[in-house]
């Protein structure tokens, strides 16, 4: 049992958990404030949109692809919701629903292009990134506040935690999304097909997995999750801005990789992505607590972590997949 837990699949995840605990533990030793649940609650709230987005990204990477359009999707969805509520009298929830549908459709469309024309995912989603950012600008150039009683209630909602902390509505939606992601990834046939396609595309096709349909659905799912991330972002900040979430695609990819998902696809866990997102939040918080360090250290430390995990993966896959390729 012990041996199988630390198998090739779970080793990166174990390392992720270790890094997370070490960072949090270090924070607790260094700063009194870290011992409070307030920090935990804030971590979950502030990183909710990132983690939700990263869940969708996890599916894409598991299937052996990449989605660079998620940051722009967040901005686009925010602007869309703001304009729908302000100018068209939509209830924010109705606007959110429209945004989710459009997000899924756009994601699916990118998946279809990738699948039908056999074009590399990064360049198609790059075009998607341009397109969505441009659409956001096109709808609205300025920062627009989203003022509606529902949004106020959403931002004010909190469940107290033991200690001084509390769980916000954003955090709850995020936790629900994580749970949903885990169920889809591990307990549905679709989820298992995603792993199969990422593990070995040609073999998966031979074994009867509907590779094309799975690919399209994976990008649709990523569109859905990033749109959901955008909804949370918009409700949480109660505003929208077409330049919002620039570079979030990179943070999301970093969360997935630090979370132990193999960039080549086929191996990984949604729970790992959750922890990977938290690690980024903890690093940010630690740097903020320190006061003497500047914010750019976040990027450098995350880059360093990314490097460490990628090299670790590389060494692991060499010993692991090597067996098969040597055949």
């Amino acid at each position: 049992m012990f041996k199988s837990f630390f198998s090739e699949r779970t080793l990166p995840l174990a390392a992720t958990i270790l890094v997370c605990l070490a960072l949090y533990g270090w924070g607790m030793i260094q700063y009194r404030g870290f011992r409070d649940t307030l920090v935990l609650g804030n971590l979950l709230t502030d990183n909710a949109f990132l983690i939700i987005t990263a869940i969708g990204m996890t599916f894409v990477i598991l299937a052996g692809g990449i989605d660079l359009s998620v940051g722009s999707m967040i901005a686009f969805v925010g602007v869309l919701i703001a304009v729908l509520t302000r100018d068209f009298g939509f209830h924010p929830l109705a606007a959110a629903f429209v945004a989710l549908v459009i997000g899924s459709l756009l994601g699916g469309a990118m998946g279809w292009l990738i699948q039908a024309f056999d074009i590399q995912p990064f360049i198609i989603t790059l075009a998607g990134m341009f397109f969505l950012r441009g659409m956001a600008f096109l709808i609205n150039l300025d920062s627009v506040p989203i003022s509606h009683p529902f949004v106020d209630a959403f931002a004010a909602f909190r469940i107290p935690l033991p200690g001084k902390g509390w769980l916000s509505a954003s955090a709850l939606v995020m936790l629900a999304a994580v749970a949903g992601g885990i169920v889809i990834a591990h307990f549905t046939r679709f989820g298992r097909n995603v792993y199969a396609v990422g593990g070995d595309r040609a073999s998966a096709a031979l074994m009867g997995v509907p590779v094309g349909r799975t690919t399209v659905r994976v990008y649709a799912l990523s569109g859905f999750f990033s749109a959901l991330g955008g909804v949370i972002y918009a409700f949480y900040t109660a505003s929208s801005y077409p330049l919002a979430a620039v570079g979030v695609e990179l943070d999301a990819i970093a969360a997935v990789v630090i979370g132990g998902t193999l960039l080549a696809g086929g191996i990984g866990f949604i729970a790992g992505t959750f922890i990977g997102g938290l690690i980024q939040g903890i690093i940010q918080t630690l740097i903020a607590f320190d006061g003497s360090l500047n914010s750019w250290w976040t990027k450098i430390v995350i880059g360093g972590l990314l490097f460490t995990f990628i090299v670790m993966q590389r060494l692991l896959t060499r010993s692991f997949v090597g067996l098969r390729k040597a055949a």
Binding site: R9, R192, A196, G198, G199, A204, M207, G266, V321, A327
Partner: peptide, 18 residues
């Protein structure tokens, strides 16, 4: 071998007939 190395043995046996 036309199976998927990253999936478990059990899943390789049962893929698409889970």
């Amino acid at each position: 071998v036309n199976l998927i190395p990253t999936l478990s043995v059990a899943e390789n046996l049962m893929l698409e007939r889970q």
